[in-house]
Amino acid sequence: MKAVENGSTSIGIKAKDGVVLAVEKIVNSKLLVPGKNKRIQTIDRHIGVAYSGLLPDGRHFVNRGRDEASTYSNMYKEPVSIPHLMDRLGLYVQNYTCYNSVRPFGVVSIVGGVDANGPHLYMIEPSGTYWGYTGAATGKGRQTAKSELEKLNFEELTVREAVKHAARIIRQAHEDNKDKDYELEITWCSLEETGGQHQFVPEDLLQEAIKFAQEEDDEDDEDEEDTEMAT
């Protein structure tokens, strides 16, 4: 868990018609190619995973998820449901805590997708424990992110609005990592917007969300200035 706590922030939001995953991608060097080195990965076509902590362990986790999903759909001829997949992944992650010949996964993963029963969002930790959430956050800025997420009204939220809120929340959570530059990566999965497939949000929507996040931030700053002047 300690390894995870210092990792960059990831969040997930379950809206009424889909899920949104977002990651604060810390950029360590100007030499890194912008827009590449994607952090959020896909399992099958309809499930997305965002993780914080030891990134190679996250890839291992996703690779296992992909194997499980393909075995299931080969057997039952339909895409795996997210609760079922989480069951299998929870078991797999827990296995790595049983023996001294392996070490536990150094990631907390947020898994979201849409299946026959609608949108689902889960978060799984290195112990193998997982819960279903409407809003989940992990990584360095999780406290800030969690308190912001709690303010959202998930029953009414659409996936489009959720994308904008995700950008805003990541920006606020980034305060904990203020000295570094970051890139925002957002994905969504919704029957109406993406046909049930997990995809990166289109460029124009991403820019809109970033602008929204900046405006919200500026407003907050203005409010603070006003109160200062008042005193």
């Binding site: 590449k36 994607k38 990965q41 896909t42 099958d44 076509r45 992909r66 393909s70 080969n74």
Partner: peptide, 17 residues
């Protein structure tokens, strides 16, 4: 058909920039 569907998923969806 199943093999081809899986091939598509692995080549075009997974880790594709």
């Amino acid at each position: 058909e199943r093999l081809l569907h899986q091939l598509q998923t692995e080549e075009e969806v997974y880790d594709s920039d």
